[in-house]
Design a protein around this nucleic acid. Structure first.
Lengths: 344, 344
DNA sequence: TCTCTTTAGTGCAACGATATACCTAGGGCT
DNA sequence: AGCCCTAGGTATATCGTTGCACTAAAGAGA
């Protein structure tokens, strides 16, 4: 690999001049030298060493991304949106799978700090972000990509869909269709997003005057085990339990699309048809929602816009310690046949 | 952030001694000093700067991962397996979405080179890897995580499932069940894996004496557009076309599970039942295969083992330029109800 | 002609680690 | 006593870049 010194020699100038050229300090430079430097760079196919640059400036063009598991299509979608946004701004993304283990999450964040990343985006924030806020106080910029405003600890930015509004819209939609016996199926309250969604469900059903008709079915996970890639399977089991309840709910809202897929599979096994016997609403609007049988109504998060906002939080002039921001995006209801049987 | 000098001062020794301690050159060191250094490190919560280390040694604990799009659950699974394997060896993974654009792929690889990565793993190798082999000749270690032995250009390692065997096993399975009119549904021959799978299908059907009964249905993609996240949707359209063919095939093999999901959805729209009207075999065995209705027979790739092998290719003593290796892993047939109706 | 300013470009000390070559006691040997 | 060896530890150059402080040369003004 050619270094800045090789270029300087080839152009017959000093390394400083090449550096000046590279950093657009063109004010003081004859067009002639400028051209010689350009030619030398092209000829040697020179690219400045990012490593040296990082060491010198202390600033990396790198951000860390913590997700429970990219194999989960939802986090895959997030990872893609964030990498895409980062790349547009000249940044690289380092990927970490945390399996929702706070210990692991903390270790990753420390490693990333030693790597000199510009900041870290966590795809899913655990309920008590103590392990992260400690690092935040040490100067690590952190963006929680999920959760709600309340979760904004000092030094932790929040960029998230409005999780309470997600379930609110789902309930409103179902009530408008005449449903009253609505059950919300969720996993344990491990993450800020789950808590907010549950809260939204409770508030919305209360507002609509649904008392005992609105139920919450909480799925328990095997202890100390990461479950996102098995959430769908747990949904299959949950459907078994729901099939037996009496009176049966006329509509289900699932904590997310993956769970909904499992629920749908389980219901089918018991001969319960969607939407005729029970309506179903998912959350996240994965591309899979559209491909289900029947296609599933879901609530879409504006992932691209959110990813751009999250990256901007970290990229934009990090010199001055910015106050922790909270950006909440509205979800969008995408109606499909799992709640409304269309003609044909 | 504390530096090695801060630690040295706190322990009352020189930076050299701290460095010796950090690098397990303990032979020459009094237990007393050793303890003082340990204490200082703990007290300051010191972590060596990876950046400085990289600059000095020239070796990074970082590998690059190029995938078409992590939002695709298959590449999500690959990304997770590779990140996991890398982490176990103390390495970080930098993620890039290439959208199968050779131009973009090349630029990413160059950026990664400037970053000093130990090597690059490409999750999907395009048919002509010229743009990469040029970089390989400049000293970039590359592992193609897909493709076949033939794709091994100089300097490019190959770690892949045996793609010809994948379709061979699928055909053997269906023939054993009595099928003869088998159609292989595939996308355009853009990648080495797709070509190898198609070749395997042709060879296997020929061997079984299936002439015109064995068909290939190639789906065309919109020109110059990345299609992995829409593959499933294209499957829906393809099912429409297949439903009209006469005589209709009794079994379908899909290029991958995502396409199979789309096909299944499309067939259902036309009242064609799986497996009663047509049997279906997917490839990759995504976790979604198990959740389909009915659960889908698929061919599993040993991703964890493959990921470990790929990372080892790059990590293991990269000082001596190793000859390009080719590691081919056998797939495993997972039989489910899309080919065999089980009782119940 | 001499100074002063401006312009174009260079020298050098960092950034945080590593590792080679060096130094310094203390102890054993003759 | 004189010598050398060695264990234990340190001084220093270096990796590739940056950017401040500097200089050399040229033109302007008196």
């Amino acid at each position: 690999m050619a270094t800045i010194l090789d270029v300087a020699r080839a152009a017959g100038v000093s390394a400083s001049s090449v550096s000046n050229f590279l950093n657009d300090r063109l004010g003081k430079m004859t067009p002639a030298t400028r051209e010689r430097i350009e030619a030398a760079i092209a000829q040697l196919n020179y690219r400045p060493s990012r490593v040296a640059l990082q060491l010198k400036t202390g600033k990396t063009a790198t951000i860390g991304l913590l997700v429970p598991a990219v194999a989960n299509p939802f986090f895959g979608a997030i990872a893609m949106a964030i990498q895409h946004a980062a790349q547009a701004r000249g940044y690289q993304v380092i990927l970490c799978n945390t399996f929702r283990d706070p210990q692991r999450e903390r270790e990753f964040a420390e490693d990333l700090m030693a790597l000199g990343v510009r900041g870290v985006i966590t795809g899913s924030s655990l309920l008590n972000p103590e392990h992260l806020s400690e690092l935040a106080s040490k100067g690590l910029a952190i963006v929680a990509f999920e959760g709600d405003v309340a979760a904004a600890a000092p030094g932790i930015h929040v960029v998230s869909v409005d999780n309470a509004m997600v379930t609110t819209l789902a309930v409103d939609h179902l009530v408008a269709l005449g449903h009253r016996r609505i059950t919300y199926v969720t996993g344990p309250a491990q993450t800020a997003a789950r808590v907010a969604r549950l809260k939204g469900f409770r508030a919305a059903t209360l507002r609509h005057g649904l008392g005992g008709e609105a139920c919450v079915h909480e799925i328990s996970l095997p202890q100390n085990q990461y479950g996102d890639d098995m959430i769908a399977e747990l949904g299959v089991d949950a459907a078994r339990a729901l099939a037996k309840t009496s009176p049966r709910p006329t509509a289900l809202i699932a904590m997310n699309d993956l769970l909904a897929i499992g629920l749908a599979a389980g219901l089918r096994e018991h001969g319960i048809a969607i939407p005729d016997d029970v309506a179903m609403v998912g959350i996240d609007d994965l591309f899979l929602a559209r491909l289900m049988n029947p296609p599933m109504t879901s609530l879409r998060q504006p992932l691209s816009a959110m990813a751009e906002a999250a990256v901007d939080c970290l990229v934009a002039d990090g010199t001055e310690a910015k106050p922790a921001t909270s950006l909440i995006f509205p979800p969008e209801l995408i109606v499909r046949q799992s709640t409304v049987q269309t003609a044909g």
